[in-house]
Amino acid sequence: MSFEVIKPGILSTLQDWGRYGYQHIGLTTGGPMDEHAFCWANWLLENEMNMAQIEITWGKLILKAHEPTIIALTGADLKAKLNDQYISPWTTYNISKGDILSFDSPVQGLRAYLAVLGGFNVKDSLGSIATIVREHIGGLANGEPLKEGDLIPFSPSSENHLKRVPKWAIPDYGAPLSLGVMLGYQQDSFSKTALDTFFSTQYEVSQNIDRMGYRLTGTPISGALNGIISEGIAYGSIQVPQDGQPIILMKDRQTIGGYPKLGCLSALGASRLAQRAPGTSVSFFPMEIEQAEAERYLFDQVVLG
Rank of each mutant, 00 (worst) to 15 (best):
153 P>S: 08
26 G>D: 08
41 A>P: 00
274 A>I: 13
88 S>I: 00
28 T>I: 04
82 L>N: 11
230 S>Q: 15
248 I>V: 09
74 T>A: 02
268 L>E: 00
226 N>F: 05
111 R>W: 09
6 I>K: 05
184 G>Q: 10
259 Y>E: 05
134 R>W: 02
20 Y>V: 06
5 V>Y: 04
53 Q>E: 14
191 S>M: 07
301 Q>R: 10
213 G>S: 13
13 T>H: 05
152 I>A: 00
249 L>T: 03
155 S>T: 12
187 Q>W: 00
47 N>C: 12
279 G>T: 09
133 V>E: 02
191 S>I: 09
50 N>Q: 13
84 D>Q: 04
75 G>Q: 01
196 D>H: 06
189 S>K: 00
256 I>M: 10
68 P>Q: 03
182 M>K: 04
142 N>F: 03
45 L>W: 12
4 E>Q: 14
228 I>R: 08
115 A>V: 12
72 A>L: 09
256 I>Y: 15
273 L>P: 04
246 P>S: 11
258 G>K: 07
124 D>F: 13
246 P>M: 04
191 S>V: 13
37 A>Q: 01
40 W>N: 01
117 L>P: 01
149 G>H: 03
106 P>Q: 11
244 G>M: 14
177 L>S: 00
154 F>A: 07
266 S>A: 12
241 P>T: 15
171 P>I: 00
266 S>I: 05
219 T>I: 08
4 E>G: 07
287 M>V: 00
280 T>F: 08
202 Q>H: 15
36 H>M: 03
232 G>W: 08
243 D>S: 02
9 G>T: 02
143 G>V: 08
84 D>H: 11
124 D>A: 15
12 S>C: 10
170 I>L: 02
83 N>K: 15
85 Q>Y: 03
226 N>G: 05
202 Q>N: 10
273 L>K: 05
52 A>F: 07
103 F>K: 02
145 P>N: 11
188 D>V: 05
64 K>T: 10
137 I>P: 01
59 G>D: 05
159 E>Y: 03
145 P>L: 13
276 R>K: 08
217 T>L: 10
45 L>D: 01
5 V>P: 03
150 D>R: 05
9 G>Y: 01
63 L>Y: 07
203 Y>R: 01
187 Q>L: 01
146 L>R: 02
180 G>L: 02
192 K>S: 15
155 S>Y: 14
117 L>E: 13
256 I>H: 12
134 R>I: 09
11 L>P: 06
248 I>A: 05
64 K>W: 03
149 G>W: 05
66 H>W: 10
160 N>L: 09
143 G>L: 03
244 G>E: 05
197 T>D: 14
110 L>D: 05
209 I>Y: 06
214 Y>C: 00
67 E>F: 06
258 G>C: 06
285 F>L: 11
21 G>I: 13
252 D>K: 09
69 T>D: 15
145 P>A: 14
255 T>Q: 12
240 V>I: 08
72 A>C: 10
267 A>F: 05
284 F>C: 11
223 G>L: 13
291 Q>M: 14
186 Q>T: 12
9 G>Q: 02
90 W>Y: 13
191 S>A: 07
148 E>G: 13
148 E>K: 12
295 E>C: 06
136 H>T: 10
171 P>H: 11
274 A>Q: 01
231 E>Q: 08
130 A>S: 14
109 G>P: 12
261 K>P: 03
113 Y>I: 11
265 L>M: 09
121 N>I: 04
208 N>Q: 10
164 R>K: 13
82 L>S: 06
103 F>G: 00
187 Q>N: 04
238 I>R: 10
